[in-house]
Every structure is written in structure tokens, then in C-alpha cells.
Design a protein around this nucleic acid. Structure first.
Lengths: 190, 190, 190, 190
DNA sequence: CATGAATGAGCATTCATTCAT
DNA sequence: TATGAATGAATGCTCATTCAT
């Protein structure tokens, strides 16, 4: 019914996967993790069957969405590390989160609801992210721009917490900046 | 704040109401807001019907739990304000949250899921809490122990964020203390 | 709590019974047989417990309401029989129904829902009503004002049907009269 | 009137819809409108989910059943009008109802319970029925076979009433005929 | 492979009836 | 004895997941 049969199947499948991830990101953010899967499928312009072909479970889809989000942050952070030097890369990472989560209501819900799974995911296929954040943390600590006693789990917790705080806060950029500043200042050695 | 004898409520009715709130707090925290209502009723040792007699809706129950929790925090904060003086009362309040949420997995979820409703509730019976926090903030700012530019909504967002961070973190007290310190330090003027 | 302890218990109980019947008649008619029993108790100004003391079952209450209604009709018909003579008593009876059911929405529902029970009731404590209608029918047939071949069950069915028709029709008296005339005319020998 | 191929409805989907309507007609009639939806689904040989996919609400299902029933009557009446001429078409219509409702206990209940909705429905997809009955009535009145003062609402009320009477009466064909005759005779001018 | 109809366990909520106060 | 809180079976409806088309 899609009308594209002159391309290798992979291409179509890959595009569907991407569409689903985009749609899921949007819909989860807009309407919460409670949305029926069918809603997401509709938003992606595919049938539910297709959704379940790509993601065996609703939870798997949610996880994929979140992993992708973290990956985006990590990638941005990696770039920031190259640009701003190891001392500030971690701060850049926090700023990215602050920007990314603008207007994405109810995402804290998703993060929290999938809490354990995020943990798990970070040990699974995306351990790389974990490692990258670990690197950023170590570098920043060696550059003495972040408290030396802070550990990786605590850093992750602060990321999640910042996200939740910004959700709660709403879109006003000045307020968001101030909240962000509180956390960034707190990260510095004292 | 609710008292125990100022309403025409039969003895056992009052006890059941209390049991239900306790059970709900515990079960929501342990197993998430998704638990069947029946589970909560069972944990409280009553039938579902009793639950719905006291709280017309599952959501109403959740709200009652959260309001009570906020009230407990507010009460504790009020005491702290008296004991530690205006300069530190707000910090004491943050510490109370950190302690209260020990081991209460998935409560961030509840906070977020009921987001709008909490907002609403805070204008209803618990507007007092909002006011109290506003007072604490003003006092601390006058005592120059908290950043002068911080507003009440931002403070609430930070509370929610701290809560989320601690959920994510797990029970290790040392780690929790460190995360708390990050936020408390960030709150101070710089 | 009612404040009347200077009267014999019977009196109170009897008044409660009457109140309950009145309230039930009113509430069943207004809101359908689906109303919670508690609604009826409230309308009667008593607790549910009292309701169930007087009527062991909701169905028993409904039956009592309907029996009382039929008894009223029968009584009226008996008087009519005395006043208007055996030839017209049955017609008077039909007219009574037409008047009684004015504005009582959803009562057809009750009659139909309890269909079998009415049948049963009429064989039970209120067999008298059945007998009275049987007498009226026989008298009218002997007076040649009603079709000779009509039997008692058919007559009862027509009563129920007339009731249903008038429910459906609404309060307009002219229309009600016309419908009534159709049935009354049809009853006559042809 | 619904046809079978004029809608983009999969073969088995259409069959399930039909089965559900049949089963619902049967089960509502046999056991009353109070039956659990699951009972209907089981009778149709499908899961509850399927039932609710086709009819968003139990009430919607009931309405569909009744509309279909009225449509059948209207169709039969239309045929009768062509066969027996305008003078008798209306009588044929009444006879159809008498036949259709044989053995369908508790259907008056359905008609009454859905009272308002039926009304509504008759303005929706089945306004045609109303119109047809209006035509039949007018024709019969012009042919002087029906009382000239009778209006359409009164006619509908008599239909409902006849239905209720026949429910109450049970299956004996002789008795049913006699009751029908009473009403048909009453309809004639006098 | 995509589709969306079918499935049915699961859940919030109601309400007739019981029983402690 | 009256009260109304407690009970829990029953019900309408949802939604993740499967599978025929």
C-alpha cells in the first residue's frame, strides 16, 4: 500500500524503524508513556503489526527511544568535549539536556517509569554511552572542574533529576537557565 | 494538619482511611502507580469497595497520598525553620526530602504522572505548603544563604528534580548525601 | 437519631415502610429501575439497612411498588364498578391507568423488567387483584361491553401494553386520550 | 439496506459484525438487556475485544440491534404496502411486529430502556422508518381505514405498547391474535 | 513483509447485601 | 432497631500482543 516496491526492502524497513522512533518520541513526550501502541503506529503512518515487528514489546520501543535520546546527548557531549576541552565537556552535556527537553512534557514520567530499564540498557548495547560519560567525568575531575568525590551513578542520577526539574518547570528560558546554573554550580569543587 | 477528631467519622472508618493511605503510600512507592487498586486494598486489609468509598477514584487516592507526603515535608520544614533559624530552614527541608524518599522506588513516576494534579492540589487544601516554602525561600534569601535570583517555581522544580535523582540513585546513603550536597551547594549564592 | 421514642415501635416501622414505598415509586419512575438502592433509601430519609430490613431484596421492593400500584388501580376499579355499573367498570379501570402513569417516565421499563415477577406476585399475596380483574372482565362480558372471547391473561397484557404506550407517548393529554380510545374501542365487541 | 460489499470491510470482519448483531439480538431477547457483554461475545463466537471493536459501547450494540429490527419491520411494511395496497399496509405492519416478537421475552425492556436513544436513532440513519410509517399512516387515513385524528407519535406509542403486551402474553398464538385484533380494531374509524 | 482485526487477561469502578456500632 | 461502613462478586471496557489476510 505504501507504493514503493522499487527499493531494496531494507531501505523501507529502516525508514519505518526511524519513523516509529520519531513518532514514539513525539507521542510519548506529548501524551505520556500510557498511550496505546496503536496511537504511536498511527502517528508513524504504519500498522501496529509493523511496530511490533520492529520492537517486540512496547517497553522495548520505549527503551529504544530513551537510548536514542541518551545517545544524542552523548554524541553532542563528545563533540563538546572536542570543542571545549575536557574541563567543560561535562557541563556542555548538562546544557544539552536542558535544551533538548524543552517542551517535552511528561518525559520525566517516561524516564522514571523505565528507570530500571534505562539502567539495564546502559549495561547492554549502549554501554558505550556509560563509558563516554565516565570518560567525561574523569576528565573533568582531573581538570578539577567537577567535585572529585562524585561517582558515575551519582552523575547519572543528577542528569535524570535535572531532566525532571526542567519538565516540572515549563518552557520559560530564564527560569530554566537558573535551575541549570544551580546544578552546574553544585557540580564544581568546593 | 488533618487532626483526628474534628470530623464526624466513625472510629473504624477513620482507621480504615488511615490504613488505606499508609498502604497506598507503601505500595505505590514499592510497585509504581500502575498497581491494581485491589492490591492496595489487600495491603490495607480492606475490600476494594472500602477503598472506593474513601477515595472516589484511584487518582484521588494517589493525590491524597502525595498531598499527605507534601504536608509531612512541610510540617517537618516548619519545625526545622523554628529549630535551625531562617538561614538554614530551606536546606533542612531539602534534607527531609532526601531522607523521606529513601527506598521509595518509582515515586518520581507518581509525582510526574500526577504533575498537573499536584499543581492543582497545591492550590487547594495544601496551598499552605506553597506558602510555607515561599516563606522559607524569602527568609533564606534575606539571610543571604540562597541565591537571590531564585524564584519559587524554580525551587519547586529543584525539589522535584532532587526527588527524581534520589529515586534513580538507590539506597546507598553516601551517594545520596553527595547528590544532595551538589544541589544544596548550588543553591547558595556565588 | 430520628428523635421519636415516645411512640410504639410499630408506628415508626410502618411509617418507614410507607416512606420507602413512596420514595421507591417516585425514584424508580424518575430514574429507572437501575437506581442504586442507596438512592432510594436517601430519598426516603432512612439508611440502606432500614430498607433491607423492610424488603429483603431490591427486587422485593420493586415488586411491592408494583403490587401497590396495581392494588390502587384495582381499588379504583372496584369503586368504579360500584359507581358506573359492571358494564363500564373495566373501562374505568383502563382510564385509571392512563391517569396514573402521567409523567412517570421509565415505568414501562420497571413493569417489563419485573414482568415475570408481576405474574408471580399476582398468584401470591395479591391474587385478589387478579380475581377482581377477572370479575370485572366477566361482568363486562356478560353486559356485552367487552369482546366475549377475551381472556384474563390477554386483558393483563393489554393493560401492560397500554401502560408502555403511554410511557412512550409523554404527557400531552390529548394524545393520551386518543391512544386510550383506540384500546377501549378495540376492547368492545365487533 | 446495509449491503455487503459497499464498505472497505474485510470478509471476516463483516462476518463477525453480522454474527455479533445476530447473537446480540438473540441474547438480549432471551435474557434481557442486563446480560454481560461477554455472554454476547461468547454467543457470537468471538472475544469481547472484537465486540468492542465493532460497537464502541454496549449501548451502541443495543441500539444497532434495535435499529436493525426496526429496519426489518419497515422493510416488511414497505413490501406489505406494495402487496396489500395503502388501505391495509399499516395493519400489515402491526401484524409483522406481532410475528417478529414471538418468543422474544424482555424486548419491551430493551425498547423502553433505550427509549430516548431509539428516538435519537430514528432521527439518524433510520429516519426513513419514521417517514415510511408516516406515509403508511397518511395513506391509510386517506383510505379511511384508520382513525383520521391519529398522529404519528401516537401510532409509534401504540406499536411500542403492542410489543409490550405481546411480550407479557407469551407464545400462545391464539391469545396473541386476539390481542392484536383488539388493537387493530381500535385503530379503525368509529 | 505490512496490515489491522481478533484476542482475552487485566483493571477501575459499581452496587446489592451484610453486619459492627 | 436504625445506621451506614464494609464487602467483594460482577461488569464494561482497554490495550498489548498475535495472526489471518
Amino acid at each position: 500500500m505504501t507504493g514503493t516496491q522499487d527499493r531494496p526492502l531494507r531501505a523501507d524497513a529502516a525508514r519505518n524503524r526511524a519513523r516509529l522512533l520519531d513518532a514514539a518520541t513525539e507521542v510519548f513526550a506529548t501524551r505520556g508513556v500510557g498511550v496505546p501502541t496503536e496511537e504511536i503506529a498511527r502517528a508513524a503512518g504504519v500498522g501496529v503489526g509493523t511496530l511490533f515487528r520492529h520492537f517486540p514489546t512496547k517497553e522495548a520501543l520505549l527503551e529504544a527511544v530513551m537510548v536514542r535520546r541518551l545517545e544524542a546527548i552523548a554524541t553532542g557531549a563528545a563533540r563538546a568535549a572536542a570543542e571545549s576541552g575536557p574541563a567543560d565537556a561535562l557541563f556542555a552535556c548538562f546544557r544539552l539536556i536542558a535544551e533538548q527537553s524543552v517542551g517535552k512534557t511528561a518525559f520525566a514520567e517516561a524516564l522514571a517509569a523505565a528507570g530500571i530499564d534505562v539502567h539495564t540498557s546502559l549495561r547492554g548495547p549502549s554501554a558505550a554511552i556509560r563509558d563516554l560519560l565516565a570518560d567525561l567525568l574523569r576528565d573533568a575531575q582531573q581538570a578539577r572542574t567537577v567535585r572529585p568525590e562524585l561517582t558515575l551513578p551519582e552523575l547519572l542520577a543528577l542528569l535524570v533529576g535535572l531532566n525532571a526539574a526542567l519538565e516540572q518547570l515549563g518552557p520559560d528560558p530564564t527560569a530554566r537557565t537558573r535551575v541549570l546554573e544551580v546544578v552546574l554550580t553544585g557540580l564544581r569543587p568546593h
